[in-house]
Design a protein around this nucleic acid. Structure first.
Lengths: 151, 151
DNA sequence: TATTGTTATACTCTATAACTATA
DNA sequence: TATAGTTATAGAGTATAACAATA
C-alpha cells in the first residue's frame, strides 16, 4: 500500500496528540466541574501523593509551571481544606504542602473520573491496541520526564 | 504481574494525552515561530487544503472553534498573502477562503516541521511501536471526527 | 426573519517582575 | 547576598454577544 507523502501536518503523531490531548483535557475539565476542581488542581494533588509533602517550588518544578501558579492553586486547595501548608521549622521560608483527608477524597474521585474517561476514549479500540496505547504513552511520558506514578 | 490500582490520574491515557499533547503543541509553536505562524493558523491552512475552499463558518465547524476566531486567523493569513477571501457571487454573504502560492509554501514548511518533530518524539520507540502509535491515534482521530487527510 | 461574517468585549489561564521574609 | 514564597501586573488566547449586510 503505497502511501503518498503527507500534504498537511494533521496526520502527524505530534499534531494528533495535540488535538486529542486538548479534547481530553476539555472533557476532563467538564467531569471535574462537579468536584469544583480543574486539571491543574488534580496535577498538584497527584504530585503530593506521588512525591509526598514537598515545598512549593519543588511542586512547581515537577508540574513544570511557574511558582506563582502553584501559589494560586495551593491557595484555592487550602481554602477548600484539600491541602495544608506547614512551615518547615528548620527553614521557615519553606512551605511544605500535604494532603488532608478531604484532599485524598477529592483525588480519589478525580482518579475515578479519569478512569471513566479512558474507558470512553478507548472504546473504539480492541484490547490489544488499548494495551499498546497505554504502554507506548507511558514510555513517552518517561522519556519526556513527566510526572509518573511508577517510579 | 499484578498491577495495583491507580492512586492518581497521572497514569491514565487521558491524562497522558493531555500532558504530552500540550508539550508537543508548545514545541510545535516554537518551531513555527520562524514562519510567524501558530498551530491554529496551520490548522486553518490544512483545512483549506484538505477540504478545498470553504466558507468561514464551515472552516470554524471543521476546526471546532468559534467563528470569530476564524475571522481573526483569516485576517492575519490574508494580510500575509497566505490566503485570499473571495465573495461567493451566488450568496454575497459568504466569504470563500482559498490558499495562495504563499499559503502552499507555508503549509509545506509547517508540514516538514511537524514531521521533524515526530521523528524526535518517537525516537525512543522501536519501529513497531512507532507504527502502532500512528495507527491507533489515527483510529481515535477518526472516532472523534477530527480533521483528517485520508477521508 | 434567518444566516454569514464582523466587531466589541470580557474572561481564563499563565507567566514575568517586583516585593517580603528568612537564611 | 541568595532563596522561598507571594503579590501585582500584563499578555495570549479564545469565547460570547451585539451588530451589519445579505438572503
Amino acid at each position: 500500500m503505497a502511501k503518498r507523502s503527507a500534504r498537511t501536518p494533521v496526520g502527524t503523531v505530534s499534531f494528533r496528540l495535540g488535538v486529542l490531548g486538548a479534547g481530553q483535557e476539555a472533557r476532563y475539565a467538564e467531569r471535574l466541574a462537579d468536584l469544583e476542581l480543574k486539571p491543574k488542581h488534580v496535577a498538584l494533588l497527584s504530585a503530593l501523593r506521588i512525591k509526598g509533602a514537598e515545598s512549593q517550588l519543588e511542586v512547581a518544578a515537577v508540574m513544570r509551571v511557574a511558582p506563582s501558579l502553584v501559589v494560586l492553586l495551593a491557595d484555592q486547595l487550602e481554602a477548600r481544606g484539600a491541602i495544608e501548608r506547614v512551615r518547615d521549622p528548620s527553614d521557615r521560608r519553606r512551605q511544605r504542602l500535604h494532603l488532608t483527608e478531604e484532599g485524598v477524597r477529592l483525588l480519589d474521585a478525580a482518579t475515578a473520573a479519569a478512569a471513566a474517561l479512558d474507558e470512553e476514549l478507548t472504546a473504539p479500540l480492541d484490547a490489544a491496541d488499548r494495551a499498546a496505547l497505554a504502554r507506548i504513552l507511558e514510555r513517552l511520558a518517561i522519556a519526556n520526564d513527566l510526572l509518573a506514578e511508577d517510579i
